[in-house]
Simulated scan of single mutants.
Amino acid sequence: MVFPNMADRTLDASGLRCPMPLLKTKLELNAMASGERLEVIATDAGSARDIPAYIKLSAHELLSYKEDNGEYRFVIECGG
């Protein structure tokens, strides 16, 4: 398990509705260097499906995922 304090950046997408958490995640990853880690915090239930699905189709890696009382946290390592 990767802990949130191991992330280089944090994107707080709380309160945003689909598709904004995913779009903001993509934009943030595009601005990052390979190997950097991004923590994403979202409250939209669609994020639990959309973000992992996007990561599977990309060069990035989902290091951890946690859901707690409607809050979704992802730690993603930026790929090339």
Rank of each mutant, 00 (worst) to 15 (best):
R37N: 04
Y54T: 06
Y72P: 09
I76Y: 02
E36L: 00
R37K: 15
M1V: 12
L38T: 01
D12Y: 04
A13K: 00
N30K: 10
Y72H: 15
F3I: 13
T25K: 00
R9Y: 11
L38K: 01
L11S: 06
Y54A: 07
E71F: 10
V2A: 11
V2P: 00
T10D: 05
G35M: 02
A31V: 05
I41L: 15
A13L: 02
A53G: 07
G70Q: 06
E36T: 02
P19G: 09
K26G: 05
L63S: 07
S64M: 09
L22P: 07
C78W: 00
I76E: 01
A33I: 09
V2E: 09
M6D: 14
Y54I: 06
P19W: 02
R73A: 03
D68V: 09
R9S: 08
L38D: 01
I76F: 01
C78N: 11
R37S: 04
Y72M: 12
I41C: 06
R17D: 14
E77I: 10
P52K: 05
K24Q: 13
I55F: 00
A33V: 10
G35E: 05
L23N: 12
A42I: 06
E61A: 13
S58C: 02
L62Q: 06
D8V: 03
E39M: 15
Y72N: 07
A31H: 12
S47A: 14
G46Y: 05
D68N: 15
A59N: 14
A33Q: 14
K56S: 14
T25Q: 01
L57M: 10
F74C: 00
T10I: 15
E67Q: 15
L62S: 03
N30I: 06
R17C: 12
D44V: 09
V75L: 13
L63V: 12
E67C: 15
R9K: 15
R73G: 01
S34A: 13
G70W: 03
S64C: 07
K56N: 14
I76V: 07
G46F: 05
A7P: 09
M1H: 08
K66P: 00
P19Q: 03
G80H: 11
E28N: 12
